[in-house]
Design a binder for these strands. Structure first.
Lengths: 94, 94
DNA sequence: TTAATGTGCAACCCGTAGGTTGCTGACAAT
DNA sequence: ATTGTCAGCAACCTACGGGTTGCACATTAA
């Protein structure tokens, strides 16, 4: 369960989590409550997704005052690029 | 649920399925019962995994007589390469 | 024809992942 | 000092995924 590949692909398997990666790639940085406005779920659910992404090393967090801001790690940014490329590839293929 | 990206990442999320991809990459082609010898599970479980991989377009099957042989599709072979590369990348990183 | 082998289908079990609600604690604003 | 906002638990619910067993069908071998 601690296999890095497992963590990464487990994290990427969920569409909400891939969406979070996309948003973070656009906004650069965001809090859990900010992301909640973009997703049809509770803040706690978003928080769990962020924890999963952090566990996979795709996201990192930093607490500033009373809010904690999340941003993509280098690995997370890499995956955002690959996901975009795959989307384009799949769209043109059909 | 029919989003291609969902299907692909859902399929790749399971370690057994990634292992199946690896075996098919080595052997070229195999049946469900042959793969059962390599994995700690039942033939039906392997068969389900193969069905999932086929649903994601990573594997294709062809029935020959009473046995059905599975092989990687082009997309599946691509992913086998990427998985190997990622493994190496993660190993050297630590 | 009969037996053996390979497959597919359906029902079922069980753990866990995704999501919710409810509460508590930390900062900030007034 | 009080009130409002942000975050972090913890418990709970529920659906689904991974796996099993059991049976029925098709094909090859005896």
């Amino acid at each position: 369960m601690s296999d890095p590949l497992n963590l990464v692909f487990g994290a990427l398997a969920d569409p909400s989590r891939r969406q979070v990666i996309g948003y973070l790639s656009e906004c650069g940085t965001a809090t859990a409550t900010e992301l909640t406005g973009e997703l049809p779920m509770t803040r706690q659910a978003v928080s769990k997704h962020l924890a999963t992404l952090a566990g996979a090393g795709l996201v990192e967090s930093e607490r500033q005052g009373r809010e904690t801001r999340y941003r993509l790690t280098e690995a997370g940014a890499d995956w955002d690029g690959r996901l975009d490329a795959l989307k384009q590839h799949l769209l043109r293929r059909h």
